[in-house]
């Protein structure tokens, strides 16, 4: 006896055949959204020698600043070092603000909120394969590891420790303790409207507490990190307690190590008399990494101890300009 709950066979057969093809979801963007994405995207410039492939990449960064009124550079040194390295490795030129047409499918840097990433940390590298529509996402550590694998000299690799940890650590300390909230926001937040300004203010403490988790800073400076961790309440208290012995001691230690590292690195460049490390014609990874800090500090950390120390070494300032020249001309 047929049940009233049973689906009739012809109807079941019909629905069993569907769907014949499942199409992926198509994102529909409004014209405002498209404009917003375009205003945060900066294409790399292709050259005749640019590597042509089915892959295109986007580098997610915190924010950008203009260098020489035209060049668009990431406002954070780790983002900037990847931005320049990717340009050099793929024979691309750095983005310019004068570029009118933005192609979202081209290699580009893209301003993101750090909460768009799983770890809450930028930079992030997103590679798309045009052939099969597959996307590969890599965090900073992963991209950095790939770049380090290309370095042949272990002398360079060990010296990169000075840049990646000692200079980086004092840079983070300078951002946390020696810069205004406006500058912190300028480096780590994107602002396109007045409304953003208000929201950015509320979000700044969260951005900084995410930032200290990057590159092992928390492990090396536990006292500073504790005071900047997770809650905005602690963030406020960090300023009250910043004179506490433990934090001060860590800041002094970081500053002394930073000065020593900078002097040591300068001596190497000064002694060799070459533009780039190891007498290379094109910038090495250590040159790019070091230059990123010089470029950011010269523009965004003016007046801080971090910048003052760099200003003592004009040859290093020249190095940063030479690195940029290689990535733009």
């Amino acid at each position: 006896m047929s049940s009233i709950f049973k689906v009739p066979t012809p109807v079941k057969d019909l629905f069993d055949k569907f769907p014949l093809v499942e199409y992926p979801a198509t994102q529909q963007l409004t014209s405002d959204e498209k404009d917003s994405i375009k205003s945060r995207t900066f294409n790399y410039i292709n050259t005749p020698s640019s590597i042509k492939s089915q892959y295109s990449f986007k580098l997610g960064v915190y924010n950008t600043f203009l260098y020489d009124d035209n060049l668009v550079l990431s406002s954070d040194p780790l983002c900037l070092s990847l931005q320049i390295s990717l340009a050099l490795n793929n024979n691309l030129k750095l983005s310019k603000s004068s570029t009118d047409i933005i192609d979202l499918k081209k290699n580009s840097i893209y301003i993101l909120n750090e909460n768009a990433t799983p770890e809450g940390i930028l930079p992030i590298y997103i590679e798309e394969n045009a052939k099969n529509n597959k996307t590969l996402v890599k965090n900073y550590e992963s991209v950095n590891e790939s770049l380090m694998l290309k370095v042949n000299s272990n002398k360079e690799l060990i010296l990169i420790n000075l840049v990646d940890f000692i200079i980086y650590d004092y840079y983070i300390i300078s951002v946390l303790f020696q810069t205004s909230k406006e500058t912190q926001s300028l480096i780590y937040q994107f602002e396109s409207s007045q409304q953003d300004k208000f929201l950015n203010k509320l979000h700044l403490s969260q951005s900084l507490s995410n930032l200290i988790k990057r590159n092992g800073f928390t492990i090396r400076y536990p006292n500073i990190s504790t005071h900047f961790s997770f809650s905005s309440k602690l963030y406020i208290s960090s300023f009250l307690q910043s004179s506490s012995q433990a934090i001060n001691h860590e800041i002094i230690q970081a500053y002394e190590s930073f000065k020593e590292a900078l002097e040591n690195l300068f001596n190497i460049y000064d002694k060799s008399g070459f533009i780039f490390f190891n007498n290379n014609e094109i910038p090495n990874l250590i040159d790019v990494k070091l230059s990123s800090y010089i470029l950011v500090s010269g523009k965004l950390l003016k007046g801080s101890n971090f910048d003052k120390e760099f200003l003592k070494y004009p040859k290093l300032q020249k190095l940063s300009r030479d690195v940029l020249r290689n990535a733009t001309e």
Binding site: L159, N161, L162, F165, R220, S257, A261, N267, I268, K271
Partner: peptide, 17 residues
């Protein structure tokens, strides 16, 4: 020498990390 001094400081950072 100057280069060794830089490598020595890097070595300490490398060991600690």
């Amino acid at each position: 020498n100057q280069e060794e001094r830089a490598i020595n400081q890097s070595l300490i950072t490398f060991i600690k990390n």
